[in-house]
């Protein structure tokens, strides 16, 4: 039962006036705290819309099972052998594919009124995007865990141990954070989430398949081997494989870090420029 409006009206008006009379203006949030707050928003969205985790759970399982059992025997002689080679690559492929959703999510988000509010507030503006990417990093971490756990169940035995696996996942997350900025550019340029997805696929397919994820590039024609050798994904996969199997060379990791930094340096300012001037 609700109380009759006549009796609640005066107190309602009082609370309204007292709420409006508060003029406290706190010190504005710094860049880090604003970014973390937006990251919290991304996590809340996962909590309220758990369906969106479909891509980070179903994808990894599908890819790992499919490639291990369909092609493993043909490529490496046995599925068990192939899994040792494939799993680090599948980890990279899975997470890199999921980065695409960052652009789609941003595209959906920006077209809604709530981004108008964020943009008209006195906060460090990149925080809205950095926070979203931090939230995405949580999704990437979940997908990574899926792949690794599934791999261990199927018989993947990394010589690099727990540390090697954790470091390789961390490296994948760093690279994905960098790559995500490329998708945010697409997310701001293109008109619909679908066109963002199509455009991302256009880049992601050649990027992941023309790499050393599935096969050793030495088996490829020379010209293709050159292309594959220049592919940043190849560098990432080599480093991840090295970390997991305990055979990593420092320069492999440095390469990946440099590429990730370059992606941020190029695409983050471009994203921010587009974000600021979004009509």
């Amino acid at each position: 039962m609700t109380a009759p409006t006549t009796s609640t009206a005066p107190s309602q008006e009082e609370t309204l006036r007292s709420a409006l009379s508060a003029r406290k203006r706190p010190q504005r949030a710094n860049a880090l705290s604003a970014s973390l707050t937006f990251g919290w928003r991304a996590l809340l969205k996962i909590k309220h819309v758990p369906e969106q985790l479909f891509d980070v759970t179903a994808f990894p399982i599908m890819f790992t099972l499919m490639f291990t059992y369909l092609f493993g025997g043909a490529i490496a002689g046995s599925t068990g052998e192939y899994l040792q080679f494939l799993l680090p690559g599948i980890l990279v492929q899975t997470v890199v594919f999921i980065t695409m959703y960052t652009g789609m999510g941003l595209n959906t988000d920006v077209t809604k009124g709530v981004f108008d509010r964020f943009r008209s507030m006195p906060v460090w503006h990149p925080a809205a995007l950095v926070g979203a990417l931090l939230g995405d990093a949580a999704r990437y971490a979940m997908a990574s865990a899926m792949v690794v756990v599934l791999g261990l169940i199927l018989g993947f035995r990394p010589a690099g141990g727990v540390a090697g696996v954790l470091l390789s996942v961390a490296l994948v997350l760093v690279f994905s954070f960098g790559l995500s900025w490329a998708w945010t550019v697409l997310g701001l340029i293109l008109r619909t989430p679908n066109s963002v997805m199509m455009a991302s696929f256009l880049f992601l397919f050649p990027l992941t398949f023309a790499s050393n994820i599935f096969v050793d590039p030495k088996t490829m024609p020379d010209w293709l081997e050159t292309i594959v050798g220049a592919n940043p994904i190849t560098h990432l996969v080599s480093a991840v494989r090295g970390l997991m199997h305990g055979t990593v060379a420092a320069q492999q990791v440095v390469w990946v870090l440099l590429i990730s930094a370059a992606l941020v340096v190029v695409f983050a300012p471009l994203t921010m420029h587009l974000y600021r001037n979004k009509t």
Binding site: Q27, S33, T37, H48, K112, G113, R117, A127
Partner: peptide, 24 residues
């Protein structure tokens, strides 16, 4: 704004806390 400038996936409380946190 003309179209609701709140986040539809979040609760009312979460929306306000989000803004308050951003404001410091």
């Amino acid at each position: 704004g003309q179209f609701a400038s709140v986040d539809e996936d979040l609760t009312g409380l979460e929306n306000l806390v989000l803004i308050a946190r951003l404001l410091g």
